[in-house]
């Protein structure tokens, strides 16, 4: 009978990531926090390394931690049956993280989703545009401060869409 998937501890992951110097910023019990500029390199290493074999990206999620954004990568190896968690922090005012969609094709849509709902830009993403909401939707709804954005922008549509063609221009701008 199969055994449960092993969650690699943060220390273990950090040890594996010694091959990418300067990648690990902080090591927690269950995850490691990576330096944003080393993210793609570290991801590529974990993907290619035969001992880690992080070929399967379970998911990418973004979290608004009030003063910074956190992008969480759940990576697992189906061969070794273990899983590990990476985190990257992004600045709250100008959130930008490099995209790992070159490493895992599966990150493509999820990064678009995070961009859409949290407003974290993924540099290097081939097709970064809003996914669920339309172009021109004010704000990013999953942010904690979405319900009271500074500058008096209220969530949702400003006016009925037909009255404001500017708001709908993005939809037809072509891609």
């Amino acid at each position: 009978m199969a055994t449960a998937t092993r969650l690699l501890s943060g220390e273990d992951v950090a040890k594996r990531l010694e091959a990418v110097p300067g990648a690990v910023v902080e090591t927690a019990e269950d995850w490691v926090t990576l330096a944003p500029e080393k993210l793609v390199e570290a991801a590529r290493f974990l993907h290619d390394d035969r001992d880690t074999d992080g070929r399967f990206l379970n998911g990418v999620s973004g979290v608004d931690r009030y003063d910074y954004f956190e992008v969480v990568y759940h990576i697992s190896s189906l061969a070794h049956n273990h899983t590990l968690v990476l985190k990257v922090r992004a600045d709250h005012d100008e959130p930008e993280v490099s995209s790992v969609s070159g490493v895992w094709r599966g990150a493509h849509l999820q990064e678009r989703e995070i961009f859409d709902l949290l407003g974290v830009r993924f540099s290097g993403h081939p097709n970064l545009k809003r996914m669920f909401l339309w172009e021109g939707f004010p704000g990013h709804p999953l942010r904690k401060d979405f319900m009271g954005l500074p500058g008096g922008v209220s969530p949702g549509l400003k006016r009925f869409p037909k009255e404001d063609p500017e708001q709908w221009a993005g939809e037809f701008r072509g891609n």
Binding site: N58, G59, S61, V63, D64, V72, H74, R105, G106, L109
Partner: peptide, 29 residues
Amino acid sequence: ELGYYLISDGSPFPFRFHVRSPSLINLSA
């Protein structure tokens, strides 16, 4: 694979409620 990524801050409400929805991610390819 339907996964839930939940963050609790100790309150009665989830701090973050993220769904790894297989339908969406299966569309990646």
